[in-house]
């Protein structure tokens, strides 16, 4: 099999450098296989995160020849035989060591999101939901939290506005909850005021890199932005809501769902 040169970034928060490794590449190998081979032979302490090696856990995100990818799903034969392959950690998050970054910020964002709140009449009972009504929600739930979308989002990567925008991963989490057929919680005010839905300028970079082919921009972020606009900036929709009492209805529904949860907690 062919010998190739792989250039890997080695270092930590204090800085580092690219180091070249020569490695024999066998048929069918992915980039992560090559990294493991180097690790076993030449660099026992080379840090890389990985778990499943089957594209299901989203641990092994890195930038390969400048492109954010899952290294376990990137085959070596995608590259020309004499092409130098350069591997470096994702840029948006702080370096821990070598290819490993500190992604804990993402976990903090998830905690800020109100989880599913079943409507009072569905709580404690089997949900009746039609497949076509959950197809979209299921699309978002395919997310493996590889954070490649967070890594390429301009707001997070170039502008470093992590305090103002939760990023595409959590926009689809929010969209999945907002579109859930039995959810009673209202997250729209928070989506506008705290999660920064207005920050996204729809460049679709997140959608481009998603290994699960989730339509982040078109199916989640744009519809969520539209819901925010409908609520706050559309005078016609505002009048209709006022006339029909939709705001009050929504609030009452959320209150009833909260009360039902409290009641269920007591009976457990």
């Amino acid at each position: 099999m062919a010998e190739r040169t792989i250039r890997i970034w080695r270092g930590d928060e204090n800085g580092g450098e690219f180091v070249d490794y020569q490695v024999e590449v066998d048929e069918g190998m992915v980039v992560l296989d090559v990294i493991h081979k180097i690790q076993a032979k030449d660099a026992n302490d080379l840090a890389v995160r990985w778990n499943c090696k089957a594209g299901k856990c989203g641990s092994c995100s890195m930038e390969i020849n400048g492109r954010p990818k899952l290294s376990c799903m990137t085959r070596m034969n995608e590259y020309e035989p004499d092409e130098l392959i350069t591997v470096q950690p994702v840029k948006t998050f702080p370096i821990i060591k070598d290819l490993v970054t500190d992604v804990s910020w993402n976990y903090e964002q998830n905690k800020r999101i109100k989880p599913l709140l079943p409507k009072a009449d569905a709580a404690g009972k089997d949900f009746i939901m039609m497949q076509e009504d959950v197809d979209r929600v299921q699309e978002f739930r395919k997310c493996i939290e590889c954070y490649l979308c967070q890594n390429v989002c301009h707001v997070l990567r170039d502008q470093d506005k992590k305090g103002e925008f939760v990023g595409p991963r959590f926009m689809i989490r929010l969209a999945g909850l907002e579109m859930h057929p039995v959810d009673a919680a209202d997250r729209i005010p928070q989506i506008r005021d705290e999660f920064g839905s207005g920050m996204c300028n729809i460049t679709r970079c997140c959608t481009d890199v998603c290994p699960e082919s989730i339509g982040l921009t078109d199916n989640a972020i744009i519809p969520i932005k539209e819901r925010v606009v409908d609520r706050y900036y559309d005078p016609v929709a505002w009048i209709i809501r006022k006339m029909s009492g939709a705001d009050e209805k929504r609030e009452a529904e959320e209150k009833a769902a909260d009360a039902k949860q409290a009641e269920l907690q007591k009976t457990v």
Binding site: P115, A123, D126, M129, M130, Q131, V134, Q138, R141
Partner: peptide, 20 residues
């Protein structure tokens, strides 16, 4: 399994809208 659904799991559905 029913509890998981209450906690947010979205299973595939039957024609009647139950967990498939």
């Amino acid at each position: 399994v029913r509890e998981l659904e209450q906690w947010g799991a979205v299973f595939d559905r039957t024609e009647e809208g139950k967990i498939r």
